[in-house]
């Protein structure tokens, strides 16, 4: 598991480095500014270390990475890992809340779909609706209705008590639809299972059957899907952060892209790349907890 994550990290770091360093254009000129003369650009180039060959710069990048250093921002003159760390909390809180909301929304929808034919049709429509529209559209819609018209939430930035609720909701609707679809299929499968019939015939009350005999089995595929979705939630956070003017990783990355601040872009790519194996490992742990078969070899 760890070896896997390290390999992914190394590959992501390598690809990020080479893509950014073969891009056309002169980063030194951008950093020095439009009006800068040739001598200034050269001075900037030397101070950024861009006069050294690509191989040397790659070796330095990987070497720094093993020590947990991601380089220094060209525009802000600060350690990249420090910049990322400051912005990370905002994005993690946003994506985390988004994940929780999407699981709540998805599971609620899945359960409601079992309440009769009308409920089923309604939920299927909602699933398509939530899934078909992009996150930024929901973000704008929510912002318009709840902040602009109703005034329940702040329009921009980190004000008020719940600055994350609306953006997280905008993130969560599409993912909730995917989770609902997965959960619906899996619930239907488990409910048809013989052990449910058996529990019923033995006289176990229905709420207890759903809670202890159906739900723990039905959430296995949901956990796997949610882990994959969590990665996309991080990516979606970039866009939604912009709309809600939240100072997260997304805004840092976007600003860095516009300013050609290569070390910050590289650092952001590595952080996002690392999120996927970490989330998958987390999902494996949860699934292992739910399914005793998978724990078997290790326990005895």
């Amino acid at each position: 598991m760890v070896a896997h994550a390290v390999l992914v990290l190394f590959l992501v770091a390598t690809v990020a480095f080479f893509i950014l360093n073969v891009l056309p254009g002169d980063p030194a000129a951008v950093v020095a500014g439009i009006d800068a003369d040739r001598a200034t650009v050269e001075r900037v180039r030397v101070s950024l270390g861009l006069d050294r060959p690509v191989a040397v710069r790659y070796a330095v990048w990987i070497g720094d990475l093993t020590r947990g250093h991601l380089g220094t921002s060209w525009t802000q003159r600060e350690a990249v890992e420090e910049l990322l760390r400051q912005r990370m909390t905002v994005t993690l809180r946003l994506a985390g809340l988004g994940l929780i909301l999407s699981i709540l929304i998805g599971m609620t929808m899945a359960f409601l779909s079992f309440l009769g034919r009308f409920g089923h049709g309604m939920i299927r429509f909602l699933e398509y609706f939530f899934f078909a529209f992009p996150q930024f559209w929901f973000a704008l819609l929510l912002l318009y209705v709840f902040s602009f018209q109703l005034g329940w939430f702040p329009m921009v930035g980190m004000h008020g008590r719940t600055p994350f609720l609306l953006p997280a909701l905008a993130l969560a609707l599409g993912n909730g639809a995917i989770i609902s679809r997965t959960a619906r299929a899996s619930l239907r499968e488990v409910l048809r299972g013989r052990h449910v019939l058996a529990a019923r015939s033995l006289g176990i009350p229905e709420p207890r059957i759903v809670l202890f005999h159906v739900l723990p089995l039905a959430i296995v595929p949901v956990v796997s899907v949610a882990a994959i979705q969590a990665g996309y939630l991080l990516a979606g956070a970039i866009v939604v952060e912009q709309i809600f003017s939240l100072p997260g990783l997304g805004r840092l990355t976007l600003t860095a892209i516009l300013q050609r601040d290569v070390p910050v872009i590289q650092g952001a790519i590595v952080v996002f790349g690392l999120a996927f194996p970490l989330l998958n490992a987390l999902a494996d742990l949860v699934v292992g907890f739910v399914q005793p078969q998978l724990r078997y070899g290790r326990n005895r």
Partner: peptide, 20 residues
């Protein structure tokens, strides 16, 4: 397929004894 696959046999028996 009669048993809750997550539970040891004793736990399943306990469920019936306790709940039913």
């Amino acid at each position: 397929s009669y048993f809750n696959p997550r539970w040891r046999i004793g736990r399943s028996l306990q469920e019936v004894l306790h709940v039913v």
